[in-house]
Design a protein around this nucleic acid. Structure first.
Lengths: 199, 199
DNA sequence: CAGACTTTTTGACTTTAATCAAAAAAAGGC
DNA sequence: GCCTTTTTTTGATTAAAGTCAAAAAGTCTG
């Protein structure tokens, strides 16, 4: 439903009905089944997507064939292959649908039109980009400063539902460790997380 | 000189003279000596800076007292403590002047005024944020996928001058390794970077 | 529900980089 | 220029996570 899409955007910056009308006109409904590759490495990402229902991930294929998951996106989230979409350059990442997706998409051209028609969309884009920047900044900091175990614990607290929906292999590569390491971390007894008195 | 500042902005998006006039009015000249802390952890970052001459770094202090350098900025670059500046929240990073800086700064309020006066500044901000996002994305990918040696080699090719200007301790924490590890990497014989025939 | 395929776990071993400690080299201040 | 302070290097050892291999558990599908 478009309403949830608008609600998500309104939370970033309240939009006039005229802006919403334009967005509504330029937005296409989207229905893609599991296992679909919405974008393959080397292609230019021509759309910005909004997920009403479902789950996707992006990954980069390394020279040795290994896949590194770079992000996940689920309900009420926007996604695209950022650099490719903005710069019209071939993408270095592949976008894979992990759970059937229903939602909306906006083409590059449609977004360009929106930018020209409504200056507030530039502000919306700025706010969203800022938001994603700060999120990435924290993720990066955690990668530099935390151990494998701490990164796993951080994921549990920032995205508790994800573990139940995504295979451990994908999670492990997202956390910058091997599947075996993640499996061993999970097998370890839970460490006490604070002073607990058992009288 | 303001001209180099405008040239940097013009490279992102060409600005009308009226916009430049507003920017010029709201911009303060900046002169800070080496060792100055432009921002300390816990303070709100109230300015966006442009460097005409000089070099700064940002770092986070970890619980164990260790400093992790999160970025460097030098000539013709903008910097601020992003999240703090945008959200008016206490900064988690400290900004330290490594080489005397001359440049300009714009206050939060001035930037807000600019956004209201000239919609094109929203677009400028969006483009700049996008640019920094993609840069961070690549840095993050390199952290996940590359070995310590490869990360060092990447830095040499992406920022060749930095090594001559910054201490190894700062570089090492920026690259996510210890100073000792970086020192050992540098001491190692240069590995052949391609097939070379010695007839 | 049986077999095939995929995912997760476990084990033994290796590699990479961190840690702790100290020496050597370089930079700064008087 | 000399002494102090900081930075960088070197050495020995440890810890963390990766690798390779195989077993176990879980899923999908006809």
């Amino acid at each position: 439903m478009l309403a949830t899409f608008f609600a998500t955007l309104d939370a970033v910056i309240p939009l006039d009905p005229s802006v919403k009308a334009s967005i509504g006109q330029l937005t296409q409904p989207l229905h893609v089944p599991r296992h679909t590759l919405l974008l393959q490495e080397g292609q230019v990402c021509r759309s910005l997507y909004f997920i009403g229902q479902g789950l996707v991930r992006a990954y980069r294929q390394q020279a040795d064939g290994r896949e590194i998951t770079t992000w996940f996106a689920a309900e009420q989230e926007l996604f695209t292959s950022g650099y490719s979409f903005i710069s019209r350059a071939p993408s270095r990442e592949t976008i894979e649908v992990l759970e059937d997706v229903t939602g909306f998409c906006i083409s590059q051209q449609a977004l360009t039109d929106l930018y020209e028609q409504h200056p507030v969309v530039d502000r919306l884009g700025r706010r969203l980009t800022e938001h994603y920047y700060f999120q990435l900044e924290e993720l990066f900091a955690s990668q530099i400063t935390l151990s494998a175990t701490e990164r796993y614990e951080r994921l549990i607290s920032t995205a508790p539902g994800l573990l139940q929906r995504v295979s451990l292999g994908h999670i492990a590569s997202y956390l910058g460790m091997t599947q075996e390491t993640l499996s061993r971390i999970r097998a370890r007894p839970i460490r006490p997380s604070g002073p607990t008195r058992s009288s």
